[in-house]
Nucleic acid binder design. Structure first.
Length: 262
DNA sequence: CGTGGACCTGCTGGA
DNA sequence: TCAACCAGGTCCACT
């Protein structure tokens, strides 16, 4: 079984925060297991920590990347990116880890975001065999939430804890959010603490299967203005993208984001 | 609804 | 070394 998948692009483009490359090995934590992967010509080899089901789910192997390329290549810019970053796939993250991580990722640069998340994992998460730490559950977090003060989250602390509380009390139904229309999903997410338009779109896209979501952060904002002359409010720019790229808008976003970060 | 400020804090690009 | 018109926004106030 071969799969079009480039680990460097997929795990290094910025959609996930905790994967690290050591030598030719990508190391991360998926579903509470320390995972190790290695790039092969026809896909990725699982060294440890993932079974086929987990792998297929995580790397969205059902998404036909060639089909995405075909349907979006009417756009010359994307056509170029597809050639250069061939094999970059969207990942299906764990919903709780995804909302929590992106709620922390506001108004901070990537190194700091990674630092905050790492400290949260080390402070509250379960230690794995290889010495790494899993992302903590809402319960683990709430159990000793005063320790969050030592994680350097700044003003995000209260929002973060409150978010954990809501998820723990099952006030957030990820399964329902996944089933409803993208617009409804985004509207509900924005009502949660620490979540605005941008984070809501990241969550919709990266863990709730709403592939038409088009998160607009500062980098994408500049890119869209430069590439398409699309400017204005958040709603304006993201709507422009969804109209142009349709149900694959999320894939378009990820390639543009990656291209503009290099 | 859209826009302007304030906002924790520290990684790291530029004085 | 050091500051910070910075950094993958959000929230609140107000037109």
């Amino acid at each position: 079984m071969s799969l079009l998948l480039n680990l460097d692009h997929t795990l290094g483009c910025g959609q996930v925060f905790r994967w690290r490359k050591e030598g030719d090995l990508w190391k991360g934590v998926v579903d509470g297991h320390a995972a190790k992967l290695r790039q092969k010509a026809d896909g990725a080899q699982v060294i440890s920590g993932m079974d086929q089901t987990s792998f297929d789910r995580y790397f969205r192997t059902d998404d036909e990347l060639e089909k995405v390329y075909r349907e979006l290549s009417f756009d010359p810019v994307l056509g170029d990116y597809f050639t250069r970053y061939r094999g970059l796939r969207l990942i299906r993250q764990d919903p709780w880890e995804c909302v929590a991580s992106y709620a922390l990722a506001t108004n901070a640069n990537i190194p700091r975001i990674q630092g905050m998340i790492e400290r949260v994992c080390r402070t509250f998460g379960t230690e794995m065999d290889d010495g790494s730490y899993a992302f903590p559950s809402p319960e683990q977090l709430l159990d000793r939430c005063h320790r969050a003060d030592g994680c350097g989250l700044g003003y995000r602390t209260d929002r973060f804890i409150e978010l954990a509380r809501l998820v723990h009390r099952e006030k957030v139904d990820f399964s329902a959010l996944m089933d409803m229309e993208y617009m409804d999903c985004a509207r509900e997410l924005v009502a949660l603490p620490g979540i605005g338009n941008k984070v809501a779109d990241c969550v919709a896209l990266f863990c709730l299967d709403h592939l038409e979501a088009f998160p607009v952060d500062i980098r994408i904002k500049k890119a869209m203005a430069q590439l398409y002359g699309a400017e204005g409010s958040y709603r304006k720019v993201s709507a422009f993208a969804r109209e142009r790229f349709g149900h694959w808008a999320g894939y378009a976003q990820e390639y543009i984001f990656y291209a503009f970060g290099r």
